[in-house]
Design a protein around this nucleic acid. Structure first.
Length: 440
RNA sequence: GUGGUAGUAGCUCAGUUGGUUAGAGCACCGGAUUGUGAUUCCGGGGGUCGCCGGUUCGAGUCCGGUUUAUCACCCCA
């Protein structure tokens, strides 16, 4: 017989794995609801063009795309944002602002797998649209932090790096760069820590020519800033036009709003100013942030930022927006490594233990009754010694076992055994439901 | 797309310079045990030693290829 493997990068979930998956989804959903976000979803399969419009044609090599039977070029979604942008655009005029939506769904990327990276992963997406001001960032980053706290993680375990593409633009403009040059430079900044110095210089030369070394020094200086005061001082040393100065002080006010807001929520200790975060693709327009484990063992836990221009680019109206995504793969690895992943499987409320055939029929009658009343009930399908059945009852995770032996049947009772403290009591079978309701 | 490492039971692994019928622990199933979860004892099912080829009287073991997994690079929405 041929053997079939799962496709590369795709997972299957046995019950004990699925229990962990459910735990992650449950916390995601719970915290998003507490922040008053509404759940939605988009299609898993979309036209290829939707994604190439957003990210450029070169993205195709990383997509699960193909031609469908109608000759359409289609792709499994690599991310949710383009679908979200379309959905919001379609009803932009009818939606109450701010629009606070979240989604939990599978995404697909055709990539080589490695640690924390698969070809199918589930992502929590949270987006807040229609709010221009930095209070949107407060709400969203607050939700990000609260979610990770919800898994039992603490300040010892993770933190959020906060950066700002606007500040970079102001800084680079003050050094005489503008337009596409700024985008190119940020592309290099994104790789700053990973790239050897000579390569960095070579790439900067393409933008800055002879002034590459000067530019590199300026970037290095900027990357070291870790407080609002340091940022203000750094700009003060630059000769800038009056308009730029005004823009900067307005931006610093935005920064203060974000930091003060998160501080008031009690999350100040989780947030660290780190201007090295600029995030790869260039559609982010303002604050950008990423969450990391503190030991630096894993890839980013979550990442996001402001993308004010995207909805319009996807055919919608002007719609300011900020959002983040959090994948289940890296998060799951971190939770397991930190002992924060609960180990449980689906359990039952009751386990019926039966003697002979008559006892089994009595038990089945009560089992059906309890199940109709909403309880989860299990019993052994085949006849077995009491001892074995008790063992099975314990390993089923049931809180109580219901014992149907010949003695009980004669007296018209069922013996209810508490599997935790091993106490037992006889309950007349006619009153089983009432007795159970008091207990469970 | 480029490179490193690994592949023996469901899981974790052992397997001697190449030598009879490939082993252990855990897990699972049955029995001792048709009135109670432990312990113990007995038994059982399970393997194309990733796959193909080569060397050899003889290959889980040596050689070549291949495939899969994994880690790193590239990329990361």
């Amino acid at each position: 017989m041929a053997t079939f493997n799962t496709l590369p990068g795709f997972r299957e979930f046995y019950p004990e794995d699925y229990a962990q998956r459910k735990h992650i989804f449950q916390i995601w959903r719970q915290v998003a609801r507490r922040f008053a976000f509404q759940e939605f979803d988009g299609p898993i399969l979309e036209s290829l063009e939707l994604f190439t419009t957003k990210s450029g044609p070169e993205i195709e090599s990383q997509l699960f795309c193909f031609e469908d039977k109608g000759g359409r070029q289609v792709s499994l979604r690599p991310e949710l944002t383009p679908s979200l942008a379309r959905m919001v655009a379609a009803r932009a005029n009818g939606l109450k602002r701010p629009i606070k939506w979240f989604s939990i769904g599978d995404n697909f990327r055709y990539e080589r797998m490695q640690k924390g990276r698969l070809r199918c992963f589930t992502q929590l997406n949270v987006d807040l649209l229609g709010e221009q001001g930095p209070s949107a960032e407060v709400e969203l980053i607050g939700l990000l932090v609260q979610t990770l706290i919800g898994f039992g993680l603490t300040e010892e375990d993770f933190f959020v790096r906060l950066s700002d593409r606007n500040l970079w633009m102001l800084y680079l403009a003050a050094h005489g760069y503008e337009g596409e040059a700024i985008g190119s430079i940020l592309g290099v900044v994104d790789k700053w820590e990973r790239m050897p110095e000579d390569k960095l210089l070579a790439q900067l030369q393409e933008v800055a020519g002879e002034k590459a070394a000067e530019l590199k020094a300026a970037v290095d200086t900027f990357l070291k800033l870790d407080s609002l005061e340091a940022i203000r001082d750094c700009f003060a040393g630059l000769a800038a036009e009056e308009a730029a100065t005004e823009e900067l002080s307005a931006r610093l006010v935005d920064w203060k709003v974000v930091l003060d807001g998160l501080g008031a929520m009690g999350f100040g200790g989780f947030v660290k100013i780190d201007l090295s975060i600029v995030r790869g693709l260039a559609y982010y327009t303002g604050f950008v942030f990423e969450a990391f484990d503190k030991k630096g063992e894993f890839r980013a836990l979550a990442g996001g930022g402001r993308y004010d221009a995207l909805v319009k680019k996807m055919g919608g109206p002007d719609m300011p927006a900020v959002g983040f995504g959090m994948g289940d793969v890296v998060l799951g690895e971190l939770l397991k490594a930190r002992g924060k992943m609960p180990e449980f499987v689906d359990t039952v409320d009751f386990f019926a233990v039966t003697g002979g055939d008559d006892e089994k029929l009595a038990a089945l009658s009560d089992v059906a009754l309890l199940r109709q009343a909403g309880y989860s009930v299990e019993y052994q399908l085949k006849a077995q010694a009491f001892g074995k059945q008790m063992k099975a009852a314990v390993s089923s995770g049931a809180r109580f076992s219901l014992i149907y032996g010949s003695e009980e049947l004669e007296k018209g009772v069922v013996k209810l055994r508490n599997l935790a403290d091993r106490s037992e009591q006889d309950i007349p079978r006619g009153q089983l439901l009432e007795a159970v309701r008091e207990l469970v």
